[in-house]
């Protein structure tokens, strides 16, 4: 037990030290030239600020832009391949605080590897990330520009849709089991931004599994699906749902909608535009 305790103590002090050292060390150092991205959205952001050339390895599923496909992969959601990361001798690792295992990152830092975190939660955070990443990777100017452009496009989209009539939508993340989004899940944010009422906005958690009965009771007028999945047969079983009756389906690119990168706004635009035909229809309450 004493050992366990001392281990956790050591670990905690390591974390504190790293946190203290981070703001001091980063701005002084020259722009890092060997960078590893540990999440797909970080990869997209890095390319967006023009620092793609500095990337030497990326995470699984880092498939955009295409240039990233040629880079070695060093982690999955479950674990980092520490040996491979060490062997690549990065001078900066960009980690996703809520997506990468904290213990592994801690381990990396023990080996003296610089780790910086990305953790966008709201849409506006993405602009901030662009700015910060630009500064961190020596592309401050492009980062600023990209951030500004992102912010401006977001504001335009918001203005365009904020006061439109609100359809009742169901976001079908999956149908077996029935899974939807709520609260701070990215698609749930987009639903709010596009002026629509998520019928499960009151559910607990970010990715709740609602009861089928509740879905039937709550009568969505539009069903949104993250990709063109083979769910037609499932929905045909409920012809009385207004959305099914009117064939009111909107599909979204899953990669856009779950990754906190610049393409999130493409998702938002596609969603807002996709909802247009169903606003103010007769089924709307």
């Amino acid at each position: 037990m004493r050992l366990l305790h001392s281990v956790s103590q050591l670990w905690l002090s390591g974390v504190i030290l790293a946190l203290l050292a981070l703001p001091l060390a980063l701005p002084l150092a020259a722009a890092p030239q060997r960078v590893i991205s540990l999440a797909p959205h970080i990869t997209e952001l890095v390319y967006a600020v023009g620092a793609g050339e500095q990337l030497i390895a990326v995470s699984d599923y880092s498939d955009y832009p295409e240039a990233a496909l040629g880079l070695p992969r060093v982690n999955s959601f479950a674990a980092l391949n520490i040996e491979a990361i060490l062997a690549l001798k990065p001078d900066l690792v960009l980690a996703w605080r809520s997506g990468n295992p904290a213990q592994d990152l801690e381990r990396l830092q023990q080996f003296g590897i610089q780790v910086a975190y990305s953790d966008p939660v709201m849409l506006d955070d993405i602009a901030l990330e662009l700015k910060q990443l630009g500064a961190l990777l020596g592309h401050a100017q492009l980062g600023q520009q990209q951030a500004a452009a992102f912010q401006q496009r977001l504001t335009t989209l918001r203005k365009a849709y904020a006061h439109k009539p609100r359809p009742r939508v169901f976001y079908a993340m999956g149908v077996a089991p029935l899974t939807t989004v709520a609260n701070s899940a990215w698609p749930a944010q987009l639903l709010r931004e596009c002026a629509s009422d998520n019928i499960f906005a009151d559910a607990k958690g970010d990715y709740p599994q609602p009861l089928l009965e509740q879905l039937l009771v709550r009568q969505p007028t539009v069903i949104i699906q993250p990709q063109q999945a083979a769910t037609a047969a499932f929905w045909q079983r409920y012809p009385n749902l207004p959305a099914v009756k009117n064939q009111a389906f909107v599909s979204l690119n899953a990669d856009w909608v779950y990754r906190a990168g610049p393409r999130m706004l493409d998702a938002m635009q596609a969603l807002c535009e996709g909802l247009e035909p169903y606003r103010g229809s007769v089924d709307n309450i």
Partner: peptide, 29 residues
Amino acid sequence: YFAEPFAANRVIFWMMGSLSRTDWHSVAL
């Protein structure tokens, strides 16, 4: 059930067993 999916996945992956987190402290324990 209420957890954020990444955290949930990690716990489930952890329960399947892995030695990737082990270091000398683990040996000592």
